[in-house]
Design a protein around this nucleic acid. Structure first.
Lengths: 94, 94
DNA sequence: CAGCATCCACGAAGATACTG
DNA sequence: CAGTATCTTCGTGGATGCTG
C-alpha cells in the first residue's frame, strides 16, 4: 500500500500499460498532476524497478518511461482496481 | 484510490472477508492501528456501503462489522493487491 | 467494550519559479 | 522537453484522555 497507495502511481502505471510514454505525454494524459508529483512518482516506480527510464540523447532530449517486465505485474492490479472504481462510480451515480 | 488508498482500509477489508468481526477483535488482528483510525476507516467503508455495522444491545454493547453484499467486491481487489505485495516483498528479500 | 474529542506531527501534494 | 528547487498547504495518522 505504501508503494501503490499514492494518488497517482497506479494511474500512471495504467497509462504505461499500453506502451511507453514520454514525460510531457503523461502530463497531458493525467489532468491535474503536477510536474513535481509526476517526477517523484515516476522516480519511485523506477526505484522499485517497475518502470524503466530511457533517455534518447537527441536535441531536445527525449525521455521514455515504460513498464519493465516485472512492472507488467501492475497490469492486473490496475485492472482490478479500475474495475472496482468504475463499478463504484456507476453505483453511486444511480 | 481515494476510498481504498488509505493505509488500512484494504487491510481491514481483508479481515472481514472471512466473516464478521468486532471492533476490538479487529484492533487485535491489525497490529499498529490506532482506535481512531480503525474507527474512521470503518466509518468510511460503512458510508460507502461496503461494510455493515450491527449493534447488539447487550451489556456491554457488542458491535459487529461485516462486508455487505456489495462489499464482497473488495475480495478480488484485496486478493490481487495482496498477491502483488507478497511478490514484491519476496523479490526484494532475494 | 466500543467508541468520540482534542491536539499535534509529519509526509504527501500543490504552486511557482527556474534550468540544461 | 524534461525536469529540479523551494515554499506552502493540506490531509492522514498518532497520542492521549474521556464516556455510555
Amino acid at each position: 500500500m505504501h508503494l501503490l497507495g499514492g494518488r497517482w502511481r497506479l494511474l500512471i502505471a495504467s497509462y504505461l500499460i499500453d506502451g511507453p510514454k514520454r514525460f510531457n505525454e503523461l502530463r497531458r494524459l493525467i489532468p491535474g498532476i503536477s510536474q513535481r508529483m509526476l517526477s517523484l512518482d515516476l522516480r519511485a516506480l523506477e526505484d522499485a524497478r517497475l518502470v524503466a527510464r530511457t533517455v534518447f540523447p537527441t536535441v531536445p532530449v527525449k525521455v521514455e518511461y515504460a513498464l519493465t517486465e516485472e512492472g507488467r505485474r501492475l497490469g492486473k492490479v490496475v485492472a482490478v482496481v479500475q474495475e472496482f472504481g468504475l463499478w463504484l462510480k456507476d453505483r453511486d451515480a444511480s
